[in-house]
Design a protein around this nucleic acid. Sequence first.
DNA 1: GATGAATGAGGTTTCATTCAT
DNA 2: TATGAATGAAACCTCATTCAT
Lengths: 203, 203, 203, 203
Amino acid sequence: MTTLSRKERDRQLRRSDILKAAEHLFALKGYHNATIRDIAKEAQYATGTVYLHFKDKDALYFGLFEEKLKSLLSIVEGKAGQSEDSIGKLRIFVQESLVFFEKNQDFFKIFIAEEARLLIETRFLKSPTGQQLHEYTTKLIKQAQEEHIISRDFDPKQVNTVFVAILKTIVLEWFKEEKVQGKSLVDLSDIIFRYLLNGISNK
Amino acid sequence: MTTLSRKERDRQLRRSDILKAAEHLFALKGYHNATIRDIAKEAQYATGTVYLHFKDKDALYFGLFEEKLKSLLSIVEGKAGQSEDSIGKLRIFVQESLVFFEKNQDFFKIFIAEEARLLIETRFLKSPTGQQLHEYTTKLIKQAQEEHIISRDFDPKQVNTVFVAILKTIVLEWFKEEKVQGKSLVDLSDIIFRYLLNGISNK
Amino acid sequence: MTTLSRKERDRQLRRSDILKAAEHLFALKGYHNATIRDIAKEAQYATGTVYLHFKDKDALYFGLFEEKLKSLLSIVEGKAGQSEDSIGKLRIFVQESLVFFEKNQDFFKIFIAEEARLLIETRFLKSPTGQQLHEYTTKLIKQAQEEHIISRDFDPKQVNTVFVAILKTIVLEWFKEEKVQGKSLVDLSDIIFRYLLNGISNK
Amino acid sequence: MTTLSRKERDRQLRRSDILKAAEHLFALKGYHNATIRDIAKEAQYATGTVYLHFKDKDALYFGLFEEKLKSLLSIVEGKAGQSEDSIGKLRIFVQESLVFFEKNQDFFKIFIAEEARLLIETRFLKSPTGQQLHEYTTKLIKQAQEEHIISRDFDPKQVNTVFVAILKTIVLEWFKEEKVQGKSLVDLSDIIFRYLLNGISNK
DNA sequence: GATGAATGAGGTTTCATTCAT
DNA sequence: TATGAATGAAACCTCATTCAT
């Protein structure tokens, strides 16, 4: 049993090495320009080894995407209990996302590219965990509407998309400009909510 | 002189044929999976002819991007006179963008992919015309702040990014779902402004 | 028109170069161990050039097979008029086949391998021209039965298979052993017929 | 000693398991497309285990070939005593071969491929047991010539090759077509001899 | 001895780009 | 200028073989 679990642990270790290298190289060069050989080399394995863990390049990309989003989802759900109301939970979602993206900047690049990929290279599947995250936040938005915090005029799914778009945009801005100024991403949580809830109108 | 300008006109015609084909194929298959051969064939030219107009694949992509954005910019600037105030001009910007994207859905896909490309495949240059558009709207936002329509608390550049993100998101949603319902994209102008100016808060 | 036909002629020339190299290498190393790179190199073209003429390795192999058998068939049909009766035509078939195989010894190796390939690697199609040849000889056998030269007890298709098997075997023997003795393959025509018609029984 | 022989027996058992799987897969996919992994998996061993019994893939293929032919040879020699005369012994050879091939259809496919392989992929050795079988039948043919049953005009080695070719061809035909009709292969023994001894001539 | 993960050479195929016509 | 065949580098992926456990 010990033997078996060590074997399994080793297996996960290798898989994780490969995913880490993939994350780095996909972020650095993009899906098409990152080669399996490069990824294997960065992970310090032979090319063929990658194929013991992922059936092809797509599966590696998709696996990476899923893995990361699962991790984010489990963090968000884990912390959700800290707040009772829906807006509180949304705040937690935003904060944890910001922490996550600050820690996983390589993945953030990949995450940004995903929308386009889904729109164009249709062989890429929509990530199930990505779906779950969307459903999670959409549900919170519906609740906030029921709690009369968010206006019922809006379609909750649309609100959710706009919400996520604002979140992404602010992270992207920080990513491109502010991170050099040493400002932490988490500090941008409030501004995101201000955009979302109140807009920019003067009063 | 007439001869020369006819020559030049013919040249522009070929260039334009190629760009049209490129637009279609980049939107259909993505940058990497669209081949120069395919594009040339769709434009009804030989492969080599493409290289008489664009130095390489990147230049073709970039040229396409520029051309389209120039077209949008000139439309927007052309109609800008119809309104005096900054918010009115922003409305015109949104409306014309919506009309433009509804007419240029292939290009919209490419436009969506651009953010990721700039972030990842760094050899792609930032489009000067894209810059101009950003500067144009940013200037309007600043004016709106001076006119006390938009709160001065916000950084105008950031507001602009959020503004564009909301615009893109709503178009994307329409693109993925609503266009089948026969609703015209222009009708979404108001909702975009509502998100931007007032947010979703109840009161 | 001259231009066009020269172009086409050049095209056929290249195709033919490639087929010649393929014939040599498939015969030397077998289908799987002959690489496209080797074939291209032997034909003095770049690897990619092969793919301008044949969609993949299978198509190259199949194309070669067809080309050669077409050539044999047209020779056989061309000479068929020299004899009136069916046995005479069969003799011509055998003689021309022997001449052909003596001239195309590389192809003969490939031809020998074909039966096995069809039996095992089922993706390989049965050559239409091979079929035609079979039908041609089977028809002659039927005629010989009608002319009371060949016993009607036998199934003509089976006779044909046996006939071809004897032919192949004798060629193969010559190929492996006798060709060094300087004996020409055509001289074996009679013995093939003797095996086929009278068998080896004493009287 | 008992221990040792049990060990040895176990060893033979494993070897035999592997050969069985190899027979199946080589017949199904051909030499090149059958992988050692597949074979090991079908035999329910690990990949590496195959290499404890056969030095490489070629040796496995060759071993399989030898094993099977040894088995056929020993059957044929075992039954040879049932007849005194050479033709009788040849009949036994044919009958036992037919029984053998009907029972070992996978191997028959491999056997058919062998001629081509020897001709083309020259690294494959000529099977010693195959040689022995050839010598055995060639000797019988010589005897039949001495007994004035077969004409002395023919070269006994050549007769033998033709003989085997007819045998293979008839089996192959049955294999491809008649086996569905429920006709047993052994029933074709007479027709093989008729082709060989009397040919197809009318009278 | 048995295992099966790891290796990495090597195969097929694609495609941006060039250049002779 | 327009053509499109030719180029050949480079990608993905497979698999015989090895070797630490």
